[in-house]
Design a protein around this nucleic acid. Sequence first.
DNA 1: ATCCAGGATGTAT
DNA 2: ATACATCATGGA
Length: 304
Amino acid sequence: MEQGAIPIAELAGGFDLQSTGESGQSYLWDRPDGEMYTTTAAHGGDAWYETVVTPIPDVIEESAVVRVRQVDGELRWESTTDAVPLLTHLLRLDDDLHAIEADTPADPLLDSAFERYRGMRLVRDPVFPCLISFICSAQMRVSRIHGMQRRLAREYGDEIQVDGETYHAFPTPGQLAERTEEELRELSLGYRAPYVQRTAAMIADGEADPRAAMGLDYEDARDHLTQFVGVGDKVADCVLLFSLGFTEAVPLDTWIQTAIADHYPDCDQGGYVSTSRAIREQFGGQYAGYAQTYVFHYLRNGGN
DNA sequence: ATCCAGGATGTAT
DNA sequence: ATACATCATGGA
């Protein structure tokens, strides 16, 4: 594989690979050391993370294997292609974290969360794997969501052999659409199995395209995504934030609902849409999703 | 054993 | 629009 390194010092606001990779944004990376989600983020870490990326228009034309680790102030990578534009895309390395933090309102919770996980970036997942990941996320723990995506890739995705190692791409819409609900239940998807199968079929059949949301205003984009089975407002917000580049999206999950109750009670407007508007403004508007992700990771790790 | 996890759906009001 | 029961699974 090709190799290279990106100096962290060249990235505005730095970078923290472990908090970016293990904060419950993306479920498409894996640690070959088997320690995903097992160690606290306290000591940073220098573990390898790897993923298989299927073609992304204007970024990569062929499927690629990418491995990356953070050590000695560098982001070192191995890949079947030039990983610099690919990692820049997937890990949003061109975001200016200084500017984003400066645009985020100061309050005790946000200050603590940004300080604790400085260098954490949003991800930009491929949209179909992201959509399936968050359909699977309903009432499920982070580590188990990750396990589901690993099993889907291992059972139904294309195999790629590189340097004697076997990698598995995430299945395409067609590959998932041709599985039965019963087969997916065998992977412990539970009641989410028919949601995954039916959404994959909608996309494979050309009935709907999640990428069409990219050309819409934020709330219209969210409504567009809720047409998929198993996708409500919250999952739609996750796809907008972690795949489609809507950095203003604030997914209202259980942790953020708790944060609203404890820290921003005036933002509780009853329904999802109006509460979303209020917390989005509370978190600074355009990059409110960054604040959401810091708060989520901070609170989920015990608020310390 | 009982509770809970990055919620969504179908149904009734 | 809003309220409610129901939906699998496995770890604490």
